[in-house]
Design a binder for these strands. Structure first.
Lengths: 184, 184
DNA sequence: GCATAAGTGGATTACCTACTCCAGTTAGGG
DNA sequence: CCCTAACTGGAGTAGGTAATCCACTTATGC
């Protein structure tokens, strides 16, 4: 691939990412191309169709999540690390609403993401289990509870991006109470 | 209005309601008209634009919510009645995903719904307050917590209608734990 | 009954979308 | 420096949308 083509590819992903955050994945290819200072043909040469762009943007975000989860795993204070991880993931959801339907429809189900999904799951479960034995996290808490929280947060962000952060933090309060062993 | 015209109006709302539940509000006016066995012109004569149909369908659902809340208010077991009400509202959300963005963008904000909103709010708050003094609901629980739960449920339903019911019930478990004074 | 206002269907318009095609441009190896 | 394969922009295509228009039909009050 020629160097200029590679630069354009990155500009397209950057433009798409920004527009997805601001407007949503319904934004038109024309606008994405314009935002990258690139013709529509250039865009469609690199990405065969619109879904390919959405996937590329999502994959970039996903890498950050996996890195967060991996880092949290090694913490020696699992309860704290778990909450920090959750908070980081949710903040990301608030900022990137477009991720929500990819989380639900691709990351959690498609076999294309099977490997990443299992890594992520293993990291989270390890953290939760250690938190439970440490007595910080309520027994019965599982990976699926975190998935539900992430799905809910993403869904809220998608529905109402403007108030997403505030609502997601409120949602987190309820889940923290539900996750915690100590009633407040 | 002529009697046949009134019949057609109801058929259009019924068709729209069914299609919104199955496909979402993105369904085309042509399909709504076809489902009502009516021409597209007939549809657009009754409802000046697409939003008017969406609003009409929502208003029909909303009346049911308000009735539920009103009935719950008179219960002499507020804690129970509150949970029953919440469960009824959430089940409705699962079945009518299209309501989600109207809840967020119209019912909770537009002054067109101000009167209904305040009635609903008063009913719910009365129930919550009685539940708190009865010692069944955790002090600090407010109307805004219920709103958040309904928004989350609606958002989930919109994002993934097929698994909505299951996810919403799961979500309710966490909120029940958070609402409750007794840790489980 | 029947006059007529109200109602109707569906072809049509205007517009927006994702995606294709191709004549012209440019990077970069030899 | 220059040749050529890679790359590019933007006009154009196909297809779907909401909304309009108008010749025709029907309910209903008298």
């Amino acid at each position: 691939m020629r160097a200029d083509a590679e630069r354009n590819r990155e500009r397209i992903i950057e433009s798409a990412s920004n527009l997805f955050d601001d407007i949503g994945t319904s934004v038109s290819l024309n606008d994405i191309a314009a935002g990258a200072n690139v013709g529509i043909a250039t865009l469609l040469r690199r990405f065969p169709d619109k879904q390919a762009i959405i996937d590329a943007v999502f994959t970039r975000d996903l890498d950050l999540w996996l890195a967060s989860a991996g880092r949290a795993r090694t913490s020696d204070s699992p309860g704290m690390a778990f909450l920090d991880l959750v908070r980081a993931l949710l903040t990301n959801q608030a900022r990137h609403p477009h991720c929500a339907d990819l989380v639900v429809h691709a990351f959690l189900r498609s076999k294309d993401f099977a490997e990443q999904r299992e890594t992520f799951r293993a990291d989270v479960e390890s953290l939760v289990n250690r938190g439970v034995t440490e007595g910080v996290i309520r027994p019965g808490t599982t990976w699926s509870d975190l998935v539900l929280l992430m799905e809910s947060a993403g869904a809220l962000a998608l529905l109402d991006p403007h108030h997403a952060e505030e609502k997601i933090l409120h949602l987190l309060e309820h889940f923290e109470r539900s996750f915690s062993v100590i009633p407040s």
